[in-house]
């Protein structure tokens, strides 16, 4: 068999953020994936930590002591931020991916409009709501408590 002399040019994970000049919706896509993976990692750690309760009160107290302190408060806040983004953006995506808020097919007449134009108010609204939650969450984590 002849050797393949072509150069593989798939961007890979780097293509989520780099390798070209991209639009804002791509970064929402990337952030959605990263926050999803972050939340998954948190849940795995969460299951391991809380399962120590099955080993008795002393084990539970010890594991709770290991995950306390300012660094873990910051970590929990980041989990909250990831959760706020993933849920609200996820709700937006749920409706968009079922064809709501993306407009109807139109005849393409230059300058072209596309579904991102129809989706823009929803994306901005979601980002605004996320920002409010992030600020309120910061006050709750670091000021009120």
């Amino acid at each position: 068999m002849a050797k393949d002399r072509r150069h593989p040019n798939r961007l890979g994970i780097w293509g989520w953020v780099g390798g070209g000049s991209w639009g804002p919706d791509r970064y929402l896509y990337t952030l959605h994936r990263i926050t999803g993976l972050g939340l998954l990692a948190y849940f795995l750690v969460h299951v391991v930590v809380t399962s120590s309760r099955a080993l008795g009160e002393a084990a539970w107290e010890a594991s709770m002591a290991r995950v306390s302190g300012p660094l873990f408060v910051l970590g929990e806040y980041l989990v909250f931020v990831a959760f706020a983004f993933h849920v609200i953006n996820g709700v937006r995506l749920f409706f968009a991916e079922l064809g709501w808020g993306i407009g109807k097919p139109i005849e393409p007449i230059y300058p072209y409009r596309n579904c991102l134009d129809d989706q823009r108010p929803w994306a901005l609204g979601a980002l605004l709501l996320i920002a409010v939650l992030v600020v309120v969450g910061a006050l709750d984590f670091f000021v009120w408590h």
Binding site: L93, Y112, N114
Partner: peptide, 25 residues
């Protein structure tokens, strides 16, 4: 997952992202 890049770059205004979401529905 609706990154929308296809529709942003399409030189003919085809809007593939819209087609894909409507197909999912």
């Amino acid at each position: 997952h609706f990154a929308g890049e296809c529709s942003r770059v399409c030189p003919k205004g085809v809007d593939p992202a819209k087609a894909i979401q409507l197909m999912k529905r």
